[in-house]
Design a protein around this nucleic acid. Structure first.
Lengths: 343, 343
DNA sequence: TTGTAGGCGTTATCAG
DNA sequence: CTGATAACGCCTACAA
């Protein structure tokens, strides 16, 4: 019960493989009669061209590689959702790789994807990645590449990100407007572009409000298990302690909230909490979590669209560009104005 | 800067392609000297065999298809995480397809995967899928297939699921033990194996406690947006209204909680809420959500392992079997005993 | 020990 | 209009 090939059809119909091939592609040089014959027979046998043979021939595999740190993460799973939707519509398949935040794994995955002869690469950097030589090599081999979310300014490629600066600025401003002055920033490893941009937005807002930047209020997580507890403790030990937390991810937000609750810190009475997050249940938490939301699915879609464009018209007409999608600040109870102002 | 091929190496070294091929595979019939030469040169040029050519030749693509209803779903993204981990270790790649709960899309995806000549299929049925002819055809073509989570008894293949009956039984028993008697069951479409098993567990527990089964307390969602609100309203309109909700998914649990809260229903005072869920923040909700958790990642891992076994020793030594992984009931505040017993 | 030839499924080129 | 042939990259009889 092996798959039907053109050869099978040719044999059965006493035609040559080239005639059958042309008939199937509805070539103008084939007689209507023969076309009909071939088409019908192919239909009956449920003929499907072998995409592997096509790839080998045409140098196009109709497959995209998606390389992300973690699939089991609200942001990335939503982004992949967007990518898959676009890819499917354009006839591409999506091959998934996880780096598990490891640089080595990222390099290995990129090589594997190249070896697979994918038509293009969508990538979000691991938190360990400081050196992007492996991606420069990808570019020098003319492999279409689009970065999303965690990008690198060193790479002259199209990049799709959320407006992290704007989101962090809005978040911090909101906290300042509601009377907070000692705003801790709990964030992800500093190599990451998004960490830098969020930090910049945070600092810009502080400056705008004349609040001096205090380095000791900024802490970097490392994706370790239960790290939020430690960081929260360190911050609470400061004097004066923070009156607000601005966290940079789902994980940190939930970890931070759990830690605060466990230590019987009143949120938002003692400290407010506001986070970058794509968690579906932010509004159901106690207290509801104010958030800056990234349009994860749209980022995935846009990145996939740009990649496919790049693949299909290999003309370098449009150079690399960075596309920023707006984030959404949603204020929920947890960051409402302080009853009595601190300072 | 095209990828290096065996031919390139052969040319450069004045050897034939077959010699190079054999040298690279470390064949015994090649002189150590030649081997060294070839190996070193290949190394320098960073030669990588073209997997597409290998596939075309060998009939093995080293790729697995994973077909799920939705990637952006805690359960599935965790399961895929497990799948990818195993696949990566065994040298397989993972190609992702989403059915978006559509039967047609599922059929199309299965065909695409077959056309891609993947080595095996991991699938979780869409909620619309009543007819599994497309999968019988997969089996009849000798394509390795493993179902997980949403399975079908009609198919003689290996299936990996959580103990849905046991989980539902434990959940319902817990609610009964804490004094609830009118337990509503808000669940997913009835075609799904997991819906049936959960319903069976629910009924078994009721029977065990001598509480008559009331069909009007069971409602089926359809993955529509904001459907929980309607269902909750219908249930609350019953007389007597339910004193507990047992929901079958993340989505339903969060939707239900939001609806209850919006209607100012005290949870767990008026109604308790307990759910099948893989949400990472169940313990942070207000009130903390008691849950039955499926070992999503382990299900993915086990399914991938079984599939790869099946692929690699094509011997049909081990027939199809159904593997049930235990679920975990975690009781949190929301289903604590009722202060005053309802009856 | 190495080389030659054929084939995996398809398409493109060139002849009839 | 249709057919033979070569090629994509690799492997494997079979020859030498």
């Amino acid at each position: 019960m092996d798959p039907v090939t053109i050869k099978d059809i040719a044999h059965a119909l006493n035609l040559s493989t080239s005639t059958v091939s042309r008939a199937l592609r509805d070539s103008y040089e084939i007689s209507p009669e023969t076309k009909r014959l071939v088409m019908e027979y192919a239909e009956r046998l449920n003929y499907r061209p072998n995409p592997i043979a096509l790839s080998l021939k045409g140098n196009s595999s109709k497959a995209l590689a998606v390389i992300v740190p973690q699939i089991a993460n609200n942001f990335f799973s939503q982004a992949i959702n967007g990518i898959e939707a676009i890819a499917y519509n354009r006839g591409y398949h999506v091959i998934i790789f996880q780096t598990h935040e490891s640089y080595e794994r990222e390099v290995a995955n990129v090589q594997q994807a190249m070896a697979r002869r994918v038509d293009g690469l969508l990538l979000s950097l691991s938190s360990e990645t400081a050196d992007v030589a492996h991606l420069k090599s990808v570019i020098s081999q003319n492999m279409p590449l689009v970065l999303f979310d965690r990008v690198s300014a060193e790479l002259p490629v199209t990049q799709v990100v959320a407006d992290n600066f704007g989101g962090a600025y809005a978040a911090t401003s909101h906290l300042l407007q509601t009377g907070r002055r000692r705003i801790a920033h709990l964030t992800i490893p500093p190599y990451l572009s998004i960490a830098q941009e969020r930090l910049a937005g945070y600092r810009a807002a502080l400056e705008q409000y004349g609040v001096p930047y205090d380095e000791s209020l900024v802490r970097y997580g490392t994706f370790g298990p239960d790290e939020a507890g430690t960081l929260v403790d360190e911050l609470l030990a400061l004097s004066p302690p923070p009156d607000a937390f601005f966290t940079a991810s789902d994980r940190l937000a939930l970890g931070c909230l759990a830690a605060l609750r466990q230590r019987n810190i009143d949120v938002p009475g003692q400290v407010a909490l506001l986070s970058f997050t794509n968690s579906q249940s932010a509004h159901l938490l106690n207290p509801p979590l104010s958030t800056v939301t990234q349009p994860a699915q749209e980022i995935g879609q846009l990145a996939a669209e740009r990649l496919i464009e790049q693949i299909e018209r290999k003309s370098k007409s449009t150079g690399p560009s960075t596309m920023k999608l707006p984030t959404t600040l949603v204020v929920r109870e947890s960051s409402q104005p302080l009853p009595k102002l601190v300072i």
